[in-house]
Design a protein around this nucleic acid. Structure first.
Lengths: 343, 343
DNA sequence: GCGAGCACCCAAAGCGGTTTGAAAATTGAT
DNA sequence: ATCAATTTTCAAACCGCTTTGGGTGCTCGC
């Protein structure tokens, strides 16, 4: 819709070549001419046409995100918005566009394929990796730079990823509860096919094992992390003959559910029952203040978005910089939801 | 990265022209040739380069969403993810790309400007309209098709929008509480500069007025809709000399906060205090079941995303179809959070 | 005063598609 | 067999930008 380079050039009595060079900072242009061009461009509100530019340069100047929507649950992961916000910030600064595809998870693969074949993106961020995730092999074959938010376990090639140390995180979380004297600790986990859920489980089991406690399958659950899921888990588990005295929750939302379930049973957090949750620092569910409501393993998913974007951009611009990986540690913050086990 | 049209044509001994026409369903091509071309394209996994195509056709085949991130609160609206999921679904079916810009809200305007001047999008969806929102005038001037999710009040041109009937919705919600005998009803609203918040407030005031009840400023709050905001509102208001007996909450998250605040005071929902909330049907905060937890004015923001996308696509493809508007009614579902006022 | 060297600018060829206008091949009627 | 009408195919221009490979006009050294 805007002015074209040609028009701008004509209005200045210059060739498109010169105008292009003047605006892109090439040296072989007279400083006075450059100034004249820049001013005219400013005045005319000229912006190079994205498509034309990237056709000419061969770079899409765009990063693709494929957001899978589980066909069964129609659920979109709430951490997604904050991650996107972080990544988008970086793309903006770097002059990259973010393009989003929302696809049913059964033809997610085709979406990547399509994105690449059409040359729509220079790089891709992979969300929600499963324990077995064919996407990594697929994207490797496609030869497009990509970065996984999280990891996948069953893959034999090297690839780039950014993850939090889920295992260590949950080991520590469980340890805190053990230190408080808890022996019956429930894990309210995410879907078991998710890689992060497996790692958290390992961390949890490790901590128990180190204390010589045998895990009880009755205290282990995995499902999509909704609020009612947490609620039901609390309600049902507290009715067991030998109920848990503490819970490990996989997200703030689940923790809210737990909390509600417990409070409906007349149980007080931190006194009767303890909770440690993972906290992605979602902006509308802050867990801060002098004494945060929940004791939590904390890691900003927004910051993860920023870092992931930076890493991917680097992969795009220095193709030979090899697979990049980063493991973010979480911090363990003490809140009001934990206390010694009642004897 | 993929095969180009030229290469495909060469491999078939045909001209690019013919191949293009064969694939795009033009009539003037021999059926047998077409079949041959289609099969070859399939085999080679050919996809037309997005940029080249849209340069040639002059259509971006993309819709822009600008997501404002309030610089002060770094908060991204949680309904955003679900709206995007709905809209993305439609774009995918229509062969449109969704491009997202995340910008600090103080240079949001420049983002639109930029998007249009670069010819990056065919249409734009405007999120989070304020009571006074300069973006509508700006986009009208730019001459780009756009649709507002929500409305804005102080604008003198016609524009396209999709909104829910916030006023009626909250009038009904307040009415339900009044019918239950409540007279002290608090409104825990969103930020006051948001258009939706004003309309909800109007509905609430209307209902009170119709029952001859004077609104009490002490029972009115507006802020970003986080969980702790709800919590504090409940805690503080219940300590008033003349506390509310019922709350009207602007989102599920706020309602959760209220619930927690009340339960910490030992008050039981539906018996001691009532809550009616608006429910956007966010996927991870479902409010369903036989008896939903909250009595709510319900409207799927995901469905809103779908409808908005369809409307905008129509505006893009039939430029003269004029401003399109749609007002979605909410349903009022009775849940466990309401009951008669205690006398 | 002349050619080398330099600073500055430009014409033209792409990038990968679509589309126009015309040519080649086929068909049908005479 | 001939020619007009119709199919079917193609060459070339174009979309808006970048970039290669010259050009032009100056200055400078001799």
């Amino acid at each position: 819709m805007g002015v074209t380079l040609k028009q701008l050039a004509a209005s200045l009595g210059l060739s498109p070549t010169t105008v292009s060079r003047a605006l892109n900072g090439f040296p072989e242009v007279n400083p006075s001419t450059r100034k004249r061009v820049q001013e005219a461009a400013e005045r005319a509100n000229y912006r190079p046409n994205t498509r034309a530019k990237s056709l000419a340069t061969g770079r899409a100047q765009a990063i693709g995100h494929v957001i899978p929507v589980s066909t069964s649950h129609e659920l979109v992961n709430p951490i997604f918005a904050d991650f996107i916000a972080g990544a988008g910030e970086i793309y903006g600064q770097a002059g990259y566009e973010m393009i989003l595809r929302v696809v049913a998870d059964d033809d997610e693969q085709r979406a990547y394929d399509d994105l690449v074949a059409r040359g729509a993106v220079d790089g891709i961020i992979v969300h929600g990796p499963r324990v077995h995730d064919p996407r990594v092999d697929m994207l490797t074959k496609l030869g497009v730079p990509f970065l996984v938010h999280g990891r996948t376990s069953q893959v034999n090639t090297l690839y780039s990823w950014l993850d939090i140390n889920n295992q260590r995180s949950f080991r520590r979380a469980a340890q805190v509860l053990l230190d408080f004297g808890h022996k019956r600790i429930a894990l309210i986990n995410g879907l078991e096919e998710m890689d992060f859920a497996q790692r958290r489980r390992s961390g949890y089991l490790e901590a128990l094992a180190a204390s010589g406690i045998a895990p009880d399958p009755m205290l282990l659950r995995q499902a999509e992390m909704t609020e009612p899921y947490g609620y039901r888990a609390a309600q049902e588990m507290m009715q067991l003959p030998d109920p848990p005295t503490a819970f490990l929750a996989s997200s703030m939302i689940v923790a809210y559910g737990l909390r509600r379930g417990l409070s409906d049973l007349g149980l007080k957090l931190g006194r009767d029952v303890s909770i440690v949750t993972h906290d992605d620092e979602l902006s509308y569910l802050p867990n801060d203040g002098d004494v945060p409501m929940f004791t939590a393993t904390r890691s900003s998913v927004r910051e993860a978005g920023r870092r992931a974007a930076r890493m991917l951009l680097r992969l795009v611009n220095e193709p030979k910089c090899g697979p990049l990986t980063e493991l973010m540690e979480t911090s363990l913050v003490l809140g009001a939801s934990t206390g010694p086990a009642r004897s």
